[in-house]
Simulated scan of single mutants.
Amino acid sequence: MKIKEIGEFGLIGRIASGFRDLIPNGWEGIGDDCAVIPWGDDRSLLVTTDLLVENVHFLRERISAYELGAKSLAVNLSDIAAMGGRPAATFLSLGLPPGTTDTKWCDAFFDGYRSFGVPLLGGDTTSSPEGIVINITVLGTAGNSHIKRRNAARPGDRIVVTGPLGDSAGGLQAILQRLPTDTDTEELIRRHHRPRPHLAEGEWLGAQEAVHAMMDVSDGVASDLLHILRASSLAATVTIGDIPVSPLLERTADKYGWDARKLALTGGEDYVLLLTVDPARFDELQANFRRQFGRRLHVIGECAAGAPEIVYRGEEGQSARLMGFNHF
């Protein structure tokens, strides 16, 4: 069997099944945004790691060293936010191809990396035969009662996101299609290169009992919501017209003939948070979130009993099957 036949998450499942019997009692391994390791009586250590490879995750000629340093860390910090935690420290392993970078590039990369103010405690550096390879591990902490997991969604829960979707995918389209440079395309590309992990929002939402399951949007809602549904053994309905899309993406999509909401559903790397919320407590959560962050949460659907699948509702009823990014 080829890896392509089972896909990225089928491969992860095969790896996880081979190590479940080795995980210490009380520890949590593969299956959420972070591993969870007990740390004292009422707190846990959160651990996440992510890999970025040149020409797979980024094009060096289109992203500055500063932006790459910041984005490399941002995508990892987002995993800590997704579980209601606070980042504490990072480790970085960096593979650099010979003759293609210099100390000026490295200095700019690390300026971007340190822009989030999270310590770098160690790692490794090596040469790479071709492209840049970046691997980061982040340690975070959270109170045990505040940790949010993918398997905690319940029937009837509102499905919610903390911000607009699709801007990063729009930026990627602008890069790949080599669109003419104007204010809108430049801003979409900036949002693709400089995602903002919702750290404050994640820690705050982690403390809210009304929030049940939570993760970040890295591969697109169409894929990421399925992770919650499979972990929680639920189905869901998503209303396409309720997917939040920025005016910036709407304008650019109209100009170049894109389907803005398809980009919003299937495009990855927005790094907003995706959560499910007790419907009886949503209005209170919404009001408190507005007071805390000055903007609203966006309801895009509802969980229901049933086999893990998403039914998309639009003006013409159920849409075609949608999937987010898959590496294999």
Rank of each mutant, 00 (worst) to 15 (best):
I310N: 03
I300H: 08
P119Q: 07
I147E: 05
R43E: 15
G7P: 07
S127H: 11
A320L: 10
A142M: 11
L226A: 10
R86P: 13
P24S: 11
G166M: 03
L172F: 13
G163A: 14
G317S: 00
F109G: 02
E187W: 09
S233T: 15
D124W: 10
G317V: 03
T141A: 11
R291L: 14
A169K: 04
L22P: 11
Y113V: 05
L265A: 00
L121I: 11
L92C: 07
S93T: 13
I189T: 11
A174F: 01
M215R: 15
L188W: 10
L275S: 14
N288S: 14
G69W: 02
D32V: 01
A65M: 09
N144Y: 06
D259N: 15
T252S: 14
E209Q: 14
G171Q: 05
I310P: 09
W27P: 06
F328S: 11
D270G: 13
K148Y: 01
E54M: 00
R150S: 08
R290K: 13
T137M: 12
V272D: 03
H298N: 00
L120W: 01
D254E: 15
D219I: 04
A264L: 04
V47Q: 00
I136G: 02
G170F: 08
C106H: 15
D111T: 09
S145L: 09
R251H: 09
C106G: 12
I159H: 02
E284W: 07
R114T: 11
A142I: 11
L59V: 08
G257F: 06
L165W: 00
I300K: 06
H192R: 15
V36Q: 04
P155Y: 00
A287G: 09
G163P: 13
E28F: 14
A280C: 08
K262E: 06
V238Q: 00
D32M: 03
V299C: 08
K104Y: 11
L52D: 10
V277P: 06
G122P: 02
Y66D: 12
L121A: 12
V299G: 02
V161T: 13
V47F: 07
D270Y: 12
A65W: 11
L22N: 13
Y256F: 13
I136S: 05
E284I: 09
I228W: 13
L263E: 00
A82I: 01
N76K: 04
P195W: 00
P197F: 08
N151V: 03
Y256H: 15
D216P: 05
W105G: 07
R230K: 05
N151L: 08
L165E: 01
G31L: 01
Y271G: 04
I134D: 04
H298L: 03
V161L: 05
V133N: 02
C34A: 12
F116Q: 01
N135E: 11
A213W: 06
I63K: 02
L96M: 03
A153Y: 03
I300D: 05
V133Y: 08
V75T: 00
R150E: 11
G10R: 08
T103R: 15
E309R: 14
V277R: 11
T141I: 14
D41Q: 15
G69A: 00
Y312P: 02
R321Q: 14
S78P: 08
G166T: 10
R194T: 04
E209G: 10
Q292R: 15
A222T: 05
F325H: 12
L94S: 01
V245N: 04
W39S: 08
G206M: 05
Y113L: 07
W27L: 04
G301E: 05
E201F: 07
W258L: 02
F19T: 10
